[in-house]
Simulated scan of single mutants.
Amino acid sequence: MTDAPHSHEPILTIDGLHKSFGPVNAVDHVSLEIRKNEFFALLGPSGCGKTTLLRMLAGFETPTGGRILLEGNDISALPPEKRPLNLMFQSYALFPHMTVAKNLAYGLEMDRLPKAEISRRVEEIMAVTDLGQFAGRKPDQLSGGQKQRVALARALVKRPKVLLLDEPLGALDKKLRERMQLELKRLQHEVGITFIIVTHDQEEALVMADRMAILKDGKLLQCGSPEDVYETPADRFVANFIGVMNFIEGVVGSDGIFNAEGLKLATGTEIRGAATLAVRPENITVTGGSFGIGGKIVDMAYHGLDRVLHVKIAASATPLQVRVPANAAVPHTVGDTIHIAIDPDRTRLFKN
C-alpha cells in the first residue's frame, strides 16, 4: 500500500438523492460529487439526515428518489453485499469469540479467497494498522482504541472502493479520539481509499476532512474545504455551526456601510437594509489604546495558548468573544474597559 494522490475525478456521485419517512424528508434531494482518494465528511446536528444518507450509500436504506453512481455506474438498487463499499459502525461489531486475525480474515473467507491471499492481506493490513502484536487476542482483551483499529482494519482488508464511517470515534475519550483522528487520516492517505465519515463533531471534521458537506433538516447547505466553510460560511446556520462566531445585528446603508450602535464598518457588500455581521473571535483585536470600539470585559476563559475575553459593547446584545494570546503583554481582568477593532475584510454579512 502506497500513498495515493488526491484526484478531482469523482468516484461517487449522489444525484438528487431523496429519502422520506412518511411526511418527513430525512434527506431532501441532495446532490454531491465525492472524489477519488479524498477524506469527505458529512456534518450536521442530530437529525439532519447524515446517517440516513450514509445508510443509503451502503444499501441499508432504499432511496425514495434520486441515484447513487459509483464510477458512473448506478448502484442505487444493488444490495449491500454487492456494493464495493464497506460501512464501519460506531459499535465496531467485532466477533467476540474470534481473535483479531480471525476477525480480519472473516470477510475474505466469506468471499472464498484462497487461503494464501487471505493470509497475505491480513498480515499486510495488520502491519499498516500496527495490530501485529494483538493478532492472537480477542476483542475483550483490547482497549477502546485497539478495537477501533481492528474494526477499521477489518473494513480496509476487503479493499473497498469507498469506506463509510458512521461516528467511528464516538465511543472514545477525548485524548484517544484526538489521536485516532490523526491515525485515521494517516491510514486513509496510506491505503488510498476514499473515506466518507459521518460526524456531528465540527472539530473532528475540520481536522480530518479534505472537503465537507453541511446538512440541516435533510438539505445540503454548503460543500467545500474546511478552510472555505470556516472562512466563508454560506449562511448564518453554517457560520454558527462551524467554530465560534460573533453576530452583531445592524443595518447596511445605501453607501454599503454597516451600522450598529457605536460601530461603523465599510464592508463593500451589495446587501442593503437589516443585516447581521458575523466575525470570528480571532479576527477581533484589542487595540491597546483608546481608539476603536469601547467595551467592558464581563468574563474570561483560559484555554492554555490563549484567553477568550467576553466583551460587552453597545452594538451587540450579547458579549463578543475576543481571542488573545495567554501571554499578552498587557494582562486583562474582568471589569476592565478596553477598545477593540474588527477587521472588515474578515467578516461575513447575512441579510436578515
Rank of each mutant, 00 (worst) to 15 (best):
M1V: 15
T2C: 14
A4T: 08
H6Y: 15
P10L: 10
T13E: 15
D15N: 09
D15W: 09
K19W: 07
P23W: 14
D28H: 15
D28S: 14
V30F: 04
S31M: 07
L32I: 08
R35F: 15
L42I: 01
S46M: 04
S46F: 04
C48Y: 01
C48W: 00
T52P: 01
L53M: 07
L53Y: 00
A58M: 11
G59W: 00
T64P: 03
I68T: 00
I75F: 02
P80G: 00
N86S: 14
L87V: 14
Q90S: 08
S91F: 12
Y92G: 09
F95S: 01
P96D: 06
H97T: 09
T99Y: 10
V100E: 03
V100N: 03
K102V: 11
Y106L: 09
Y106S: 05
P114A: 14
A116T: 15
R121W: 12
V122W: 09
E123W: 07
M126L: 06
V128I: 13
T129I: 06
G132E: 08
K138Y: 02
Q146C: 06
R149T: 02
A153I: 06
K158L: 13
K158H: 09
R159I: 12
R159C: 10
L165E: 00
P168K: 00
A171F: 06
L176A: 07
E183W: 03
R186N: 10
I193R: 02
E203L: 10
L206G: 05
M208I: 06
A209H: 03
A209C: 08
A209E: 00
A213C: 08
L215M: 10
L215T: 04
G218K: 05
C223N: 05
G224C: 04
P226Q: 07
E227K: 14
V229H: 00
V229M: 02
Y230V: 08
E231N: 14
T232V: 11
T232M: 12
A234T: 03
D235A: 10
G243Y: 08
V244N: 13
F247G: 03
I248A: 08
E249V: 15
V252H: 06
D255K: 01
G256P: 11
I257P: 02
E261A: 14
G262L: 06
L265G: 05
G268Y: 13
R272Q: 10
A274D: 07
L277D: 01
P281K: 04
V286F: 09
S290R: 03
I293C: 01
G294Y: 04
K296V: 10
I297E: 02
V298E: 10
L305N: 14
V311R: 03
A315P: 06
A317N: 15
L320P: 01
N327Y: 11
P331C: 09
H332K: 13
G335N: 06
D336L: 13
L349W: 08
F350A: 09
